[in-house]
Amino acid sequence: MADHGDGAGALTSLIGRRAETARIAGLLSGARLVTLTGVGGGGKTRLALRVASDVAGSFPDGVHVAELADPRDPELLATSVLGTLDVARPGRPGADATAALVARLGERRVLLVLDNCEHLVDACARLADTLLRCAPRAACAGDEPAAAQDRGRAGLSGGAAARAGGG
Rank of each mutant, 00 (worst) to 15 (best):
D3C: 06
D3E: 14
G9S: 14
L11R: 15
L11C: 07
I15C: 01
G16M: 02
G16W: 01
G16F: 03
R18C: 04
R18M: 05
R18N: 08
R18W: 09
R18P: 01
T21P: 03
A22Q: 15
A22F: 09
A25Q: 04
A25V: 08
G26C: 09
G26M: 02
L27K: 13
L27F: 13
L28P: 06
S29M: 06
S29A: 13
S29V: 05
G30R: 13
A31R: 12
A31N: 15
R32E: 07
R32N: 13
L33C: 14
L33T: 12
T35H: 01
G38Y: 02
G40H: 12
G40S: 15
G43F: 07
R46Q: 09
R46P: 00
L49P: 09
V51I: 04
S53L: 01
D54W: 12
V55Y: 07
V55C: 06
F59A: 05
P60Y: 01
P60C: 00
D61N: 07
G62M: 03
G62F: 03
V63S: 11
V63G: 13
A66D: 07
A66Q: 11
A66W: 05
L68F: 02
A69D: 11
A69F: 10
D70E: 14
D73I: 02
P74W: 00
S80N: 10
G83Q: 06
G91S: 12
R92S: 08
P93C: 09
P93I: 10
G94M: 09
T98I: 08
T98S: 09
A100Y: 04
L101P: 03
L101I: 01
L105H: 00
E107W: 00
E107D: 15
R109F: 04
V110D: 02
L114E: 04
D115K: 07
E118G: 05
E118W: 01
H119R: 07
L120E: 08
L120Y: 03
D122G: 10
C124R: 07
C124N: 07
C124M: 08
R126Y: 11
R126V: 15
A128H: 03
D129K: 14
C134S: 15
C134P: 00
A135W: 05
R137W: 05
R137H: 14
A138N: 01
C140T: 09
A141Q: 10
G142N: 02
P145Y: 13
P145V: 15
D150I: 11
G152Y: 10
R153M: 10
R153Y: 11
L156D: 04
S157C: 11
A160N: 08
A160R: 12
A160E: 06
A161H: 12
A161E: 14
A161G: 14
A162G: 01
A162Y: 08
R163Q: 12
R163V: 11
G167P: 15
